[in-house]
């Protein structure tokens, strides 16, 4: 049963694994450039396992000691996970003891796969979600550790490799767009985010953008329910 679920999960994870190896490596290289051994990116990718927050944490570690600030920053940068959790309530709470790891390991990409993928016929759902989560995290840990080990020794210019993260979200966005017959939520998300970005600037827009999205979607609820099934 486990082997079948693992083999079913693997192809869904390959694109993310590729992205994670690259971005994880750039994270490891980044920590190495700040003077940390490979043990640091390895341990943070096991314990924190939230990519963008790990980059931010590396930066925090070379600044003034401020644990409360670190906590607040983690809550803000990762507040989007609250949205993911709400989307996964029904899927994950049926998973028994495995749910603890499913929830712990629910990064952006794993969430994107598990929320949008139905396991094939005859494959155990919970083990499928479990292996998607595990394979993704293993790739991230491997990339971060490798990056920390090789440091600045890479034989080619890696400038711009961080775009792989952007490309990943664009591809996920396109995939969701093509699969959906109503695009109101996606359009709302982009418009609210751009509005918050213009109003609050690149360093402070994440929280206002999330509030704006929440308000807009709440206001649109009647419209959404009335036109259930209709093209939008």
């Amino acid at each position: 049963m486990k082997k079948k679920a693992f083999l079913a999960a693997l192809p869904h994870c390959l694109p993310v694994c590729t992205g994670f190896l690259f971005v994880g490596m750039s994270y490891g290289v980044y920590m190495a450039s700040l003077g940390f051994s490979f043990v640091w990116p390895m341990l943070t990718s096991i314990t924190i396992f939230a990519g963008s927050m790990e980059f931010v944490t590396a930066n925090l570690l070379v600044q003034r000691f401020d644990p409360l600030g670190a906590l607040l920053l983690a809550l803000t940068v990762n507040a989007r996970h609250l949205f993911y959790g709400v989307s996964m309530l029904e899927k994950y709470r049926a998973a028994g003891r495995k749910r603890w790891y499913l929830i712990f390991g629910m990064c952006d990409e794993t969430f994107a796969i598990n929320v949008s993928t139905e396991p094939p016929e005859g494959v155990d759902r919970d083990w499928f979600y479990f292996f998607v989560t595990l394979i993704d995290q293993a790739a991230w840990i491997a990339g971060a550790t490798l990056g920390g080990l090789v440091g600045g020794l890479l034989p080619f210019d890696t400038t711009g490799i961080d775009f792989v993260l952007t490309a990943l979200f664009i591809v996920i966005f396109l995939g969701q767009w093509l699969a959906a017959d109503r695009h109101l939520p996606a359009v709302t998300g982009v418009l609210c985010s751009v509005a918050a970005l213009v109003l609050f600037g690149a360093d402070n827009f994440l929280l206002p953008a999330m509030l704006l999205i929440l308000l807009a979607l709440t206001a649109l609820r009647k419209k959404w329910n009335k036109k259930e099934g209709a093209e939008l």
Partner: peptide, 28 residues
């Protein structure tokens, strides 16, 4: 039981949040 409002959010938020993440990556 999950309130209807939360269920609605669970349905529409994933698409909106992916949009947010794209904008977040391109914020600079």
């Amino acid at each position: 039981p999950i309130p209807a409002y939360i269920k609605y959010l669970g349905e529409v938020l994933p698409h909106a949040v992916t949009g947010l993440l794209v904008v977040y990556c391109l914020r600079n």
